[in-house]
């Protein structure tokens, strides 16, 4: 009987151990604005992501001043005039995804619906996207793409440059995830 209890306990522990959290501190967030007048892109390679497989919770954080533009002047305008990063230094996403179907221990590719709320420039809006989780040789890569309208986040764009900044900005997130021990 003792052996049965011990075996049951070990099985319970091993199941618990598979329900893990996964994270990245070097997630790449890129945004891209395309208009006939100009293409603008910015990259941030220092964002954090954490996924809790057991609860489905997913959280992303990024610092606005960490977005790098091709031109120094663009970066200044982005921070000072549009995103007001002195006042709103951070953007984040908090949501949930169906990560329970992902077997992080074996090779495979999964599409996961993720939905939640993104806060940026003091405004919070619902966001949903399909994320891809690809596991190959023990490496876990996550990626997703969605679109935001600057107006939804109260970003004021002066009339003089309205034709140069898209109302549908493409946001791409890529990260290599590691188990959180």
């Amino acid at each position: 009987m003792k052996k049965l209890i011990l075996a049951t306990a070990l099985v319970a522990i091993s199941f618990g151990a598979t329900a893990q959290r996964y994270f990245s501190k070097t997630a790449h967030i890129k945004f891209f604005s395309h208009t006939s007048a100009e293409d603008i892109k910015a990259d941030n390679y220092k964002s954090t992501i954490i996924i809790d497989q057991a609860t489905g919770a997913v959280q992303v954080e990024t610092l606005i001043k960490s977005f790098e533009f091709e031109k120094a002047l663009m970066q200044e305008h982005f921070n000072e005039n549009y995103l007001e990063s002195d006042k709103y230094p951070k953007a984040n996403f908090k949501g949930k995804g169906d990560f329970s179907k992902v077997n992080f221990a074996a090779d495979g590719t999964y599409s996961v619906n993720v939905a939640g709320q993104m806060t940026m420039h003091g405004a919070t809006k619902d966001v949903s996207a399909i994320a891809t989780i690809k596991i190959a040789g023990g490496k876990i890569d996550g990626s997703t793409k969605f679109y935001v309208n600057p107006r939804d986040y109260n970003v004021q764009i002066p009339d003089v440059v309205k034709g140069q900044i898209s109302e549908k900005i493409e946001v791409t997130v890529k990260a290599t995830l590691q188990p959180l021990k």
């Binding site: 501190k25 954090t48 954490i50 959280q59 954080e61 990024t62 610092l63 001043k65």
Partner: peptide, 15 residues
């Protein structure tokens, strides 16, 4: 450098 803020699990970032 210039401080850009704090990120969960990561720390304080300077640019």
């Amino acid at each position: 450098g210039f401080c850009t803020g704090y990120l969960m699990m990561d720390g304080v970032q300077m640019s």
